[in-house]
Computed example of a mutant assay.
Amino acid sequence: MLTLFFVPLIILGTGAVSHPLLLFALYITSGFGMAGVGMGVMHDAIHGSYSKKPLVNKYLGYTMNLIGANSSVWRIQHNVLHHTYTNIDQGDDDINAPFFLRFSPNAKRYWIHRFQHLYIWLFYGLSTVSWITAKDFIRANRYRKLGFFNKKGEFRKAIWKIGGWKLFYYSYALVLPLIMVPLPMWMIVLAFLSMHFVTGISISMVFQTAHVVSNTTFPKPDDKGVIAHDWTLHQLASTSNYAPNNRFFSWLIGGLNFQVEHHLFPNICHVHYRKLSKIVSKTAMEYNVPYLVKRTFLMALFDHVKMLRQLGRG
């Protein structure tokens, strides 16, 4: 995945590309590699499950920074908020969306949500563009207010690091091709955006089809902020697997089709999820607790669209 991401950008950086079709082909190929790095390398590394050696996880976690995002912010958003408060409105940052999107029945509904199942794909595609520009800064500031980055000088240092990594990313992914590739600037920028559109669509579909589907639950805290079920039952009820028998697809997306196992055991590397799923499903059946799974990814995707439509209407 790292090769798939970096090699096309290296070719673009040499200035050897002069045809528009090759320009777009290389950027789009890099986009698939970027998605693969995010799902199959960075994700495990930041969870501390890629390797038994913390130093390996630390440095492979920086691949998040190399694709334009930030590992420190992601660790809070994903490891802490998403995995602790899965599908809880205002708690899980994966479903905390701008006003024109509604991912939870507990979120406020506006008239525009009636059409979100149609226009959602544009915003999924643009999601990583937002990520590499403003979202990390906005979230870092919000997380500081939640009690993170609270040591003296820690927030300022984090902002400088976020900005520095992003400048480095833009320098080799966009600025160098702008200098070296003998094609119009607008065309190179458009090809760069197409790379991110591919990445955004890929990552969004993989993650959202595991939680925002019709048979998952969206628990609402009581007046004291307490959720009725314990954490394990909460994860089982708010998370769904898909395509458990598709080995190639599972490899392609870093085992994230086994989201149930990932949420129960985030410190275990994804290469073990397939075997682990047999134990988890059997245990869930034994204790008569939910174990949600869709037979194929397309079934999960269609159900996600159905859920978006439902959320837009009531």
Rank of each mutant, 00 (worst) to 15 (best):
residue 1 M to H: 09
residue 2 L to E: 08
residue 3 T to L: 15
residue 8 P to D: 07
residue 9 L to N: 14
residue 17 V to E: 07
residue 21 L to M: 12
residue 21 L to I: 15
residue 22 L to V: 14
residue 22 L to S: 15
residue 23 L to C: 03
residue 25 A to Y: 08
residue 27 Y to P: 00
residue 28 I to M: 13
residue 31 G to S: 10
residue 32 F to Y: 08
residue 33 G to H: 08
residue 33 G to M: 08
residue 40 G to E: 03
residue 41 V to K: 04
residue 41 V to M: 04
residue 44 D to Q: 12
residue 45 A to W: 04
residue 46 I to M: 13
residue 47 H to F: 03
residue 54 P to C: 14
residue 56 V to R: 11
residue 63 T to F: 11
residue 64 M to C: 08
residue 64 M to W: 08
residue 64 M to Y: 14
residue 66 L to H: 12
residue 67 I to G: 03
residue 67 I to P: 04
residue 68 G to I: 06
residue 68 G to C: 05
residue 71 S to K: 13
residue 71 S to W: 12
residue 73 V to G: 02
residue 77 Q to R: 09
residue 81 L to S: 04
residue 82 H to M: 03
residue 83 H to K: 00
residue 84 T to D: 05
residue 84 T to C: 01
residue 85 Y to C: 00
residue 91 G to Y: 01
residue 94 D to G: 02
residue 96 N to W: 01
residue 99 F to L: 13
residue 101 L to Q: 02
residue 101 L to H: 00
residue 102 R to I: 07
residue 102 R to N: 02
residue 107 A to N: 09
residue 109 R to V: 03
residue 112 I to W: 07
residue 112 I to G: 04
residue 114 R to H: 14
residue 115 F to L: 13
residue 119 Y to H: 07
residue 120 I to F: 06
residue 127 S to F: 03
residue 128 T to L: 07
residue 135 K to D: 09
residue 136 D to S: 01
residue 137 F to S: 05
residue 142 R to Y: 10
residue 143 Y to Q: 03
residue 150 N to P: 03
residue 153 G to C: 05
residue 153 G to W: 04
residue 160 W to H: 14
residue 162 I to G: 00
residue 162 I to V: 02
residue 163 G to C: 06
residue 164 G to M: 02
residue 166 K to E: 05
residue 167 L to S: 08
residue 168 F to D: 04
residue 169 Y to W: 12
residue 171 S to E: 08
residue 173 A to N: 08
residue 173 A to P: 08
residue 174 L to I: 11
residue 177 P to V: 12
residue 177 P to C: 07
residue 180 M to F: 04
residue 180 M to L: 05
residue 181 V to S: 05
residue 183 L to I: 03
residue 187 M to D: 06
residue 187 M to Y: 13
residue 191 A to M: 04
residue 191 A to D: 05
residue 193 L to C: 11
residue 195 M to W: 08
residue 195 M to D: 06
residue 196 H to E: 05
residue 199 T to Q: 13
residue 200 G to F: 06
residue 201 I to D: 05
residue 212 V to S: 02
residue 213 V to W: 00
residue 214 S to F: 07
residue 216 T to Y: 04
residue 219 P to Q: 12
residue 220 K to I: 11
residue 222 D to I: 05
residue 227 I to E: 02
residue 227 I to A: 00
residue 229 H to T: 15
residue 230 D to S: 13
residue 235 Q to K: 07
residue 236 L to N: 09
residue 242 Y to E: 01
residue 244 P to G: 09
residue 244 P to V: 07
residue 244 P to C: 06
residue 245 N to D: 14
residue 245 N to K: 14
residue 245 N to R: 07
residue 246 N to S: 12
residue 248 F to Y: 10
residue 248 F to K: 03
residue 250 S to H: 10
residue 251 W to F: 15
residue 252 L to K: 03
residue 257 N to D: 07
residue 260 V to K: 00
residue 264 L to V: 05
residue 271 V to D: 15
residue 276 L to H: 04
residue 280 V to G: 06
residue 281 S to V: 10
residue 281 S to N: 13
residue 282 K to T: 15
residue 282 K to A: 14
residue 283 T to G: 01
residue 287 Y to E: 04
residue 288 N to S: 11
residue 290 P to R: 12
residue 295 R to G: 07
residue 298 L to C: 12
residue 300 A to W: 00
residue 302 F to I: 09
residue 303 D to P: 03
residue 306 K to L: 13
residue 306 K to V: 13
residue 307 M to W: 06
residue 307 M to T: 14
residue 310 Q to D: 14
residue 312 G to S: 10
residue 313 R to T: 11
